[in-house]
Nucleic acid binder design. Structure first.
Lengths: 220, 220
DNA sequence: GCGAAGCTGAAAATACGCTGACAATGGCTT
DNA sequence: AAGCCATTGTCAGCGTATTTTCAGCTTCGC
């Protein structure tokens, strides 16, 4: 699960990142408003933590732009104590939840978890990808309407690759997504997993970028 | 389609109203418990969104009164995070669905749509599912018109699964919906419960998706 | 042609879910 | 109040699907 932390106060961002990483999320940071907007608009995040007071581009504006463009990932707003109207506007602009500063880190983590869980249960569950269809609700992949049997790990890998499509994903990233914290460096389990997935869906699904990682096949 | 939004937090009510209006519903608002009860009792709504914490008259009481009076429009309950017993009571009082705050507006809209669709298809409290019939009002499951004896917990599980049909539900989700929060996570009570339900309704009712969770059986 | 990166098949290790028996709980009957 | 019964959670053992590991092999880029 990939979370964007959009907060220009480095201390807060750092603390959040640490806690979220410990909770098993993959964290991306952005400190500048323009940057935040662009990345949220072009990359796939499972959730965004958005501070409203960002430099260059205001958080509310960013959020409204995203929503207008149809980006519907869950967004949790960080708002200063007492800024009541900010919260109102935030909700109206399409935020899913907000937390008031100063906050307890664990609370934010808990809420992000809740948001992601709810969102994944709801958001348009079928993604067409090449000749296959990824159904995130049924957690299965179908081809011509027929389910393709995949093991949990294979499914997770495929779902991850689909979500990161048109991007090269390193083995390390895959490891971080599919395995909890302590991963062995000297194992080739990702390679084996990729091989098994190819065996199921065809060799073309996942292309190897030698030295860099993997990416979804061209017609996918 | 006419929807009553019974929520005293004006911000939430406003946001809901906006989204529902955009989705083509006609919205009515009510902020006071007495008012909500009266209007739901005397006017015709296709669905009601009911916050439980209303002033003057409690949401659960309102719902129970409506049901006792034979009013059977679909009701979606808004409940605070972690108020597990509220949810259970809500369902038992005759609610058709609930959403936990904080929620995503689109989710509420989607659920209201689903509720209305379902209600117009069937006589609202009965849901046909395979060879079985789930009667949410009577809180029982029948087969060929004959009631199938289920324990309360078994019924809850089945109702939940029916509710989440065409979705894979993880054990964690089941635990969170059927048990109070402080529950031992390292026990296999869900597995046992599933086994017991299968013994009653047949092995095909609930399919195991190893490593992912459970789903309602194919012809259900 | 060489070395590193990636692939493969099979065995070994592990995780997951199922089962039957038992214990704790609480309601009901006598 | 005692005993009975239904209900539900706990536990240990089991079989199997799944995953990891490992050793050797192939491929790619330089």
């Amino acid at each position: 699960m990939r979370v964007l932390v959009a907060e220009d106060d480095r201390r807060i961002a750092g603390a959040l990142g640490q806690a979220l990483a410990a909770a098993g999320f993959v964290i991306e940071f952005a400190f500048d408003g323009e940057d935040v907007w662009f990345r949220g608009d072009t990359e796939a995040f499972d959730a965004v933590i958005l501070d409203l007071g960002l430099p260059n581009l205001d958080g509310l504006t960013i959020l409204k732009r995203w929503r207008r463009a149809g980006r519907n990932m869950p967004v949790l707003i960080l708002t200063a104590r007492g800024q009541w109207n900010e919260r109102v506007e935030g909700i109206e602009a399409g935020a899913d939840d907000y937390v008031v500063k100063p906050f307890r880190i664990e609370e934010v983590v808990a809420r992000i978890r809740a948001l992601i869980r709810r969102a994944s249960g709801f958001s348009s569950s079928q993604i067409e990808v090449g000749e296959y269809m990824l159904d995130t609700r049924m957690k299965q992949v179908t081809r011509d309407g027929l389910p393709v049997p995949l093991t949990p790990q294979e499914y997770r890998l495929f779902a991850f690759m689909v979500h990161q499509r048109s991007r090269v994903v390193s083995q390390l990233e895959i490891t971080e997504h599919l395995y909890s914290q302590d991963f062995e460096r000297d194992s080739n389990s990702v390679e084996v997993l990729v091989a098994r997935l190819r065996k199921r869906l065809g060799a073309g699904v996942i292309l190897t970028r030698r030295g860099l990682g993997y990416t979804l096949g061209g017609n996918f």
